[in-house]
């Protein structure tokens, strides 16, 4: 009975990840600038999603939950020393997450990274949610800051990007 539930859960999880892999890839890509880090971060996000899948509560949408986990994991992953996350290297032939590594995307990400490199980790997350057309209320729900604070931070983010563009 428990095994059947687990299998059902697992296939549900895999479907969820497949349907929302774009969110995970974008979150991993906005926070990292090289393929190896991006792959590690993607794995970490998927792993954390799996770990907390059973406790996922349906009061917020599945995408909100994925954004929340992806953003939190990304920030913590980058903030905390990597020494604290000992991983065993994966078989690269089996686990190659290559969605953003084609040439066209690579150059696009490079361009985006140039524009956002003055932003801190939280600002990058807020910008990602803004670019994903999330409302202030949704951004506030995902990040835990107030809607007013979201507005203030977005103004500051836009100013920073403008300044960056002017500087060239």
């Amino acid at each position: 009975m428990r095994d059947r539930k687990l299998v059902k859960n697992k296939s549900h999880f895999i479907d969820t990840i497949k349907n929302n892999s774009g969110i995970i890839h974008k979150a991993a890509s906005i926070y990292t600038s090289n393929p190896q880090d991006r792959e590690d971060l993607t794995q970490e996000i998927i792993y954390q999603l799996w770990k907390s899948f059973d406790s996922f509560k349906s009061y917020s949408s599945i995408s909100t939950w994925i954004y929340r986990v992806a953003m939190n994991v990304s920030i913590f992953y980058l903030k905390q020393s990597k020494k604290r996350f000992q991983t065993i290297p994966l078989n690269h032939e089996i686990v190659k997450v290559e969605s953003v590594d084609n040439n066209e995307d690579y150059h696009m990400w490079k361009k985006i990274h140039r524009q956002i490199n003055t932003l801190n980790l939280l600002e990058k997350g807020i910008l990602m949610l803004y670019l994903e057309h999330k409302s202030y209320a949704e951004i506030a729900e995902i990040t835990g800051i107030s809607e007013t604070n979201v507005g203030t931070k977005l103004m500051r983010i836009k100013a920073k990007i403008r300044k960056r563009v002017i500087k060239g």
């Binding site: 794995q43 792993y47 799996w50 089996i94 969605s99 066209e104 995307d105 696009m108």
Partner: peptide, 21 residues
């Protein structure tokens, strides 16, 4: 351009099985 279907069942299973933290 991001191909959302490129991540396969096997890849996800492999991440869950191999990831050791």
């Amino acid at each position: 351009t991001t191909n959302q279907k490129k991540i396969t069942n096997d890849q996800i299973r492999s991440i869950l099985k191999s990831k050791y933290r």
